[in-house]
Design a protein around this nucleic acid. Structure first.
Length: 284
DNA sequence: CCTTGTGTTCTCCG
DNA sequence: CCGGAGAACACAAG
């Protein structure tokens, strides 16, 4: 599940590799992964290059020429893997962790003028690629709240956000309108770190809890980025490697296992329609 | 049936 | 009865 740290890792990896390099070939192996007119999509991409790669929440924004933007959302199983000309040679990469591409999950392939290739893989085809203009992009950006690592995301912002809310805190943390980039893994991890049960009503958090939660959201996201994200199942970085934050997870995916803090069993329930993990002893 | 991210729709409440 | 909030549902595919 690529959330903010995973998408940011890919953004940084790709930014160091493909900016300014001409796209010479585009293969739509699964046309349904491209939203809108496929022919127009190809026309906009071919012969162009990416000037910059931005991100808002979990959405990647590749800046093309002429006020056009390529949006890529990985949803649950999407991957963006780049291979240089050298790595494309069978056996030409060291370590062996880079798999042979394309594979049966490959939906779109970008070829560059330096013979590098970018593969969009997506087992479940929930992810998408879409070209928008500046106006459409501005409208999309309106649908995102501040990101955890932006300065405006602090205790006083969270306090205002939680005031008077009757819904549970977990659902609020997942709502991209309010906070951009948190998904199921980091919402559960941040709540564990803050010692707050996911089903607590958002408006019931004390000032101290709110401050702690704001800090822990920032902390877990920052740490996850520094470990290049979490690979729970499908996530890979732009070089095909797994993220290193999995070993740091305290509750996500640890149902019935012992809490590292108190030794009691981690509980899993369904909340806000999502699998939700917490320690009934450490989280109040 | 499950998994999650997101967009839409429905209902509730003040 | 309006509007916002929040819950519920739909959908993607294996």
């Amino acid at each position: 599940m690529p959330e903010l740290p995973e998408v940011e890792t890919i953004r940084r990896d790709l930014s160091a590799r493909i900016l300014g390099t001409k796209i010479t070939k585009l293969e739509l192996l699964s046309p349904q992964s491209v939203l809108g007119n496929k022919k127009e999509f190809s026309t906009q991409i071919l012969g162009s290059s990416f000037r910059e790669i931005d991100r808002i929440g979990k959405l990647l924004i590749f800046v093309l020429q002429k006020g056009k933007y390529l949006l890529i959302h990985l949803k649950m199983t999407g991957q963006l893997i780049y291979q240089t000309k050298q790595e494309l040679i069978p056996g030409g990469h060291e370590g062996g962790e880079v798999k042979e591409l394309p594979n049966k999950m490959t939906r779109v392939v970008f070829s560059f003028s330096d013979d590098g290739k970018l593969y969009f893989n997506d087992q479940r085809r929930f992810g998408y690629l879409k070209i928008v203009d500046a106006k459409e992009l501005a409208k999309i950006k309106e649908k995102f709240g501040p990101e955890p690592l932006q300065a405006e995301f602090n205790a006083s912002f969270l306090k205002k956000l939680l005031r008077g809310r009757r819904g549970n805190i977990k659902a609020l943390l997942l709502n991209q309108l309010h906070i951009a980039g948190l998904g199921n893994i980091y919402a559960d991890e941040a709540l564990f770190r803050a010692g707050i049960r996911p089903m607590r009503l958002a408006g019931s958090l004390s000032e101290v809890e709110t401050k702690k939660l704001a800090q822990e959201i920032k902390g877990v996201i920052k740490s996850a980025i520094s470990h290049r994200g979490t690979t729970f199942s499908d996530y890979r970085d732009a070089t095909g490697k797994r993220g290193g934050f999995g070993v740091k997870l305290q509750v996500y995916g640890r149902s019935k296992e012992k809490c590292y803090r108190c030794g009691r069993a981690i509980t899993k329930v369904k909340l806000a329609g999502r699998g939700t993990h917490f320690c009934p002893y450490c989280q109040k």
